[in-house]
Amino acid sequence: MKTIASLLTSLVIAFWVVVIAIIAMKNGEPVSLRFLSYQSIQIPFGFILALSVGIGIISTTILKTLGNIVGSGENNSQLDEEPEFFSEDDF
């Protein structure tokens, strides 16, 4: 099952890399970012897009890893028990 999940993840990432490359080629004009009173230098739109996606992927990976580390310390004995959907009184 892990191989299917890895394959699907790779396909999704490859798809988005192609989409970013196409958008970057179509939009070669430099743009500048503005935040409050700050303004950046002129940067190509494709570079900003690729940088944003890279930051998003890295931050998601870090947050997911930290969540797994914090979640592994909890009491997981409830996960080992199978839930009872029917009780003997129902029949």
Rank of each mutant, 00 (worst) to 15 (best):
M1H: 05
M1K: 04
K2C: 06
K2L: 08
I4A: 09
A5E: 07
S6C: 10
S6W: 10
T9Q: 14
V12A: 14
A14T: 09
F15I: 05
F15C: 09
V18A: 10
I20Q: 05
I20H: 11
M25C: 04
G28K: 03
G28F: 02
E29N: 12
V31Y: 09
S32G: 01
L33C: 01
L36A: 11
S37D: 15
Q39R: 13
I41A: 10
Q42E: 11
Q42P: 08
P44I: 03
F47S: 09
I48H: 00
I48F: 05
L49V: 08
A50R: 02
L51P: 00
G54Y: 00
I55M: 12
I55W: 14
I57H: 02
I57V: 13
S59H: 04
T61H: 06
I62E: 01
L63Y: 08
G67M: 13
G67P: 02
N68W: 15
I69W: 13
V70P: 00
N76V: 07
Q78C: 15
Q78G: 12
D80R: 09
D80Y: 09
E81R: 09
E82A: 09
E82V: 05
E84G: 04
F85D: 05
S87N: 15
D89F: 12
D90F: 04
D90G: 00
F91Y: 13
F91E: 14
